[in-house]
Structure formats: C-alpha cells, structure tokens
Design a protein around this nucleic acid. Structure first.
Length: 565
RNA sequence: AGGGGUAUCGCCAAGUGGUAAGGCAGCGGGUUUUGAUCCCGCCAUUCAGAGGUUCGAAUCCUUUUACCCCUGCCA
C-alpha cells in the first residue's frame, strides 16, 4: 500500500478480467463488498494449480476489501478424509492467507440443502428416479442425440416426497435410486438433462459422521452454498462453464438468500510436471515418490519441504496472470521466482558438496584464524558470521583442474584463485591415489591477500568456496531434478510414468558445511555460495545428521558455455 | 441436434478502431571476492488463415482452420 499509487500507474500491472469484473460491480453499486471462496475437495493434497486459485480468490478479497471463505466441498465422503482437510488448511495458512471466520464445509449446509430438495419436489421440479446407472446413461442420449424422459419423471409430488424420505431413511441400497432435477432431457447442454441432485452413499462422513446416507451432488450443493455464504463472485475453472446454466437454474428456482455469480478462468498447467490429483496420488501410492510432500512433487507441501517460499509462490501466481485461454507455463518462470526471492533474502553460507582436500604448504599447521564474512552481499541487516580458516581445507572437486583453458576461472595447477572471504592461493602440486585420482591438492597462500589483491599485480582468476577440514559439519545434501523428462508427460495418450526422469534425485553423503549451519532451522533458506539455495529437510534432518534439500541451483552460465564446447 | 470455450514473440501476457506494454527464456556488453545478483542493450512491420468494412483493424463483419472442455449416482 503506497501513498504514491496514483503516480505509479504507468508501471502498475494492468488488471485481469476478474479484477475488471469486480471493480465494475463495485463501481456500479451491484455490490458494496465482495465475497469469494476457495472450495477444495479434501480428497488430496493441494498443488501449484490450487495455489493459483488460492491467490486469485484470497487475492481478490484482499485487494478489494472483501472476504474469502475456505470451504471444503465435502459432498463425496468415499474419497475424502480429515488428513486432507488438515493439510489443506496448513497449506493455505502457509501461503499467508487468512480465511474469513471459521472454516466452512458444504456439509454444514446439508440440512438446508435437503430442505431445498424438498422445495423442488413440491414445485414439481425434482423427482426420484429408479433408473440404474446404466439405464440412466442410455436415457441421457449423447452429443448428437437428445435424451429421453425417465419413466419415473411423472411421479406425483406426494410419491416423490415419500420415496425421497425413504431414501434419506436408508431404506434403499446404493445405486437403486437418485433424486433428479426435472429440466430438459433434450437440452444440448448435457448438464441440463435432468441432473442428479442426491445419490445414496452409505458411507461414513468425516464431518457429519453417519447422519446421512444420501449426499448432494456438486451441482446441487455448490451454488447454493455460495448463496448461503453470500459469495458474490464464485470463481472456478473453465471446465465448469457448461455447469453455469445449471448453477443459475438452482439459484433461480430456490428461495436462496443471495445471488452469486460464477466466473471461470483457465487452470494452471506447468511443463515437466503433472498436476492432476489422480496422477499425483498414483505417484504417492506406487512409491515413485516419498509421500505427498516429497520435495519433487508440485504439491504445495512438497514445494514447502523443498524450500520454496510463500512469497515466491505468490509472486509466481501474480506473474502468470489470469485469463480464459489454456496455457502451459514454463517451469523456468517458477524457478525464477524462487531464485528471485531467495537471492534477496537468504543468508549465504559455504558448503562443499564433493570435497577435495587442499593443504596450504606455507600456512602453519597449528594456526587458525577466525574470519568474518557478510551473510549477504547487499543486505547489511542480515549481519555477519565467523568462519575458521586453517591449513587444511576442503574445496569442491570440480573447482580444481590440473590444466584448463582461460575460460576456467577456478583453481589450476600453477595458477591462482581466491578462497571466498579469505586468501588468494596458488596451486603447486597434486597427490594421486593408485588409480590416478587426485586426492589432495597442495597450494601456497599468497601473503597479504586477506581482503586485498596480490601486491605483485597477478590477480586470481576467480573465487571458490571452501571449508576448514577440521571445522565443519558433516551433512547429507539432496539434489533434486525434475520428475519428468518430457515437457508434457501426460499429453495425448502417453503414460506419464514412462516420462519419469531416472535421475530426479541425487543424494550426496559426507558433504562439508560451515559450522554456522548448525543453527539452521526448518523453513529457513540458505544460499550455499556458488551452488544454489538449500534448506533443512523437515522429514529426515536430525541434530546428529543434517540433511539439506537443494531448492534450486544458482543460474549457471558456465555450465552453458561448457556444454557448447 | 450437438453444445460450450480459446487463438497476440520459444513461454506467460497487456491491448476494447488511432498505428503491437511488460515479464520469463534467449542473445550481446558492463560491474562483481558467488561463472550468482545488479546494470545496459537486442529480441512481433505484425496479432491462427482468407476475404470485407474503414482515412485507419489485433480490435468491427463474413468465412475457414486448430486446440481445449462436456455423454460420473466425481468435483
């Protein structure tokens, strides 16, 4: 909120169509205050696509001074449970949103919904149908042929009332009958061909227990729940557009307390990922990943465990926009958003992932120095930390080469490099094992180079990170790569499992982290200098054994130039 | 007797009759004790195609094409 908003217009983001609709409704006086809702079904964990919907619904309420409800759309007890309810609440809170009042459930309205079903029956607009599922499908017709009226369509109001009451009393088996709206079996919109309002499900419900054995359908429950809650703008995804005439039919034919309006936007798709609860569930159930919150999953809980921040996700949702056209956002956009946030806010630290011993020949073996490093190159408020320097260090294996061309800006035999925050050194010789692997590098410290360039004018080629061999934390680091190699794993008739990236996880043992990382806490992101952004793993990290997840690597233009040669 | 949607740069996306914003990616260059960040520059004579209206069209009209959604007692 800035006092100079009016003068910032040229740089401000243009409004998307939902914002336009809301501001017009407010300007015209249609609404004094808007109300939205985020209506997840608790049958799985939330994913990045839900984040878009959350940001949109809660975002509109925030932006226009309205309220947003969290409402569990719990009309199908067979697929839903409390675990999902809890994870969803946690994810919404973590993203930084507060729902209006207490959590709502569609099941809170089952009594009212039942009364409204009676109302429809009494007005001759609903009937109990005894067609089986198969029969009903045949009566429904198809895209090219109109449906036929159910033989039960003309039951009397009295009979319908009586049979519906028996339905509710549990006198019929599942699948033997259903309550249907009496609309138009010839409608080109199949949703209007006498849709089901209630079906029998003798299932225990996570909120209402065993009170009901009939449950309302999505269509019969959603709009009326919106009306009960005074939702003004009911925002959903494109596939529900065909349901809108039905949504409005209920609103028009029932004595609802308010008139909500439905608006549809395009769901989020991201390349190199799947975002379908069914497929994500399959990855979990068949153990391709380590649970719904596996750091490779595009679930909100997975991304949280991976080290994504709420700000990065919200910024991402802001950047991708809201439209009605199907689109596939490049995962690079998401990666940019995390890097952007973490670069600005994550304290820096050093950690050697694949250690190579480095001995400084002219530095006393019994000497140590305490060096002070800034926690962030530009954020003084993030403070400083101390690092111990000694004559035996670990550097990254890939930061040393016996010989290299001028493009290689790291340590080369006979050449110089700067040890981050410490001295410039020059490599003198290497020690190899029996099979010719370099197991140690010997180098000398160039005197007087702490915080200064060498006096002889021979500047180091680059800077590498390091950690003292006797002053570090042994830890495990997990490097994640995309779960799929195919940018559209589930496009066409493909089996998305065939596209899985076999190298989506690399576990590095015996990494060497600087001692300050002992104070790391779950949820806090660090930049391991020159490597990327990392965070403690909430599941496997312990006091005895630190486990870090790589959230995202740093942009690596060197890797790119190397590739080209 | 099918219906409902959507098409603007590799990817998102503004634009609503006055002569194509911005971001991501990419490509050059500068700064840098992170090959990061940051900074500067380049990146759509053209808006799915074809006609038409107009002084003027991504925007209006006609028509064609492509893609997405809908035939659960799922949401």
């Amino acid at each position: 909120m800035s006092a100079t908003d009016s003068t910032e217009k040229p740089s401000s983001k243009p409004m998307h169509f939902i914002q336009n609709i809301i501001s017009q409704d407010l300007a015209s006086g249609l609404h004094q205050k808007i109300a939205t809702r985020f209506p997840p079904e608790p049958n799985g964990y939330l994913h990045i696509g839900h984040a878009k919907s959350i940001c949109l619904n809660f975002g509109m309420a925030e932006e226009f001074g309205g309220a947003c409800n969290l409402r569990f759309d719990d009309t199908n007890p067979e697929k839903e449970n409390e675990e999902f309810v809890n994870s969803i609440m946690e994810d919404v809170k973590w993203l930084g949103f507060n729902w209006n009042g207490k959590v709502k459930y569609t099941s809170d309205y089952f009594d009212q919904l039942f009364d409204w079903a009676i109302h429809l029956i009494k007005n001759g607009k609903a009937f109990v149908c005894n067609l089986s599922a198969d029969e009903m499908q045949r009566y429904r017709g198809n895209f090219n042929e109109p449906g036929k009226n159910s033989p039960y369509r003309d039951r009397s109001v009295e009979e319908n009332l009586a049979v519906f009451e028996k339905m509710r009393a549990g006198e019929f088996e599942e699948g033997t009958c259903s309550l249907r709206a009496k609309i138009d079996m010839a409608s080109p919109n199949i949703n209007l061909r006498d849709p089901i309002l209630y079906r029998i499900k003798k299932a225990h419900h996570h909120q209402t227990g065993d009170k009901w054995c009939i449950y309302p359908s999505y269509d019969f429950a959603h709009g009326q729940s919106d009306a009960i809650e005074g939702i003004t703008h009911s925002i959903c995804t494109l596939e529900f557009e065909d349901h809108k005439p039905l949504y409005n039919w209920f609103i028009e034919n029932l004595p609802v307390p308010a008139i909500p309006r439905q608006y549809e936007f395009a769901r989020l798709n991201i390349n190199y990922a799947v975002t379908s609860k069914r497929k994500l569930k399959q990855l979990v159930d068949e153990n391709y990943v380590d649970g719904w919150n596996d750091p490779r999953m595009p679930t909100i809980s997975g991304m949280r465990r991976r080290g994504f921040t709420p700000a990065s996700l919200r910024n991402f949702c802001e950047r991708i926009g809201v439209t009605r056209s199907d689109s596939v956002v490049d995962v690079g956009m998401l990666e940019f958003c995390v890097r952007d946030d973490l670069d600005k806010n994550a304290p820096r630290a050093m950690c050697v992932l694949q250690p190579l011993k480095l001995t400084l020949t002219n530095y006393p073996a019994d000497k140590t120095e305490v060096l002070t490093l800034h926690n962030h190159p530009s954020r003084e408020d993030l403070g400083d930390r101390e690092i111990i320097f000694s004559n035996t260090l670990f550097i990254e294996q890939e930061d040393f080469r016996e010989e290299a061309n001028k493009k290689y800006k790291r340590l080369v035999l006979g050449k110089r490099v700067r040890l981050r925050g410490a001295y410039v050194i020059e490599a003198e010789s290497v020690v190899k094992d029996a099979s010719g692997n370099i197991i140690e590098v010997l180098a000398k410290v160039i005197e007087g180079t702490l915080g200064k360039d060498p006096e002889d004018g021979v500047k180091p080629k680059g800077v590498i990170h390091w950690v003292s061999a006797n002053h570090n934390l042994n830890c495990e680091v997990r490097l994640y790569d995309r779960l799929f190699n195919d940018e559209a794993p589930d496009a066409g008739g493909k089996n998305f499992l065939d596209a899985m990236n076999p190298n989506n996880l690399q576990i590095l043992e015996n990494c060497k982290a600087e001692p300050s990382l002992a104070k790391a806490i779950v949820g806090q992101g660090f930049q391991f200098e020159r490597q990327g952004y990392f965070c403690l793993d909430s599941k496997y990290s312990t006091q005895e054994k630190l486990v870090f997840n790589r959230t995202i690597s740093l942009k690596d233009s060197f890797a790119k130039t190397e590739e080209q040669e």
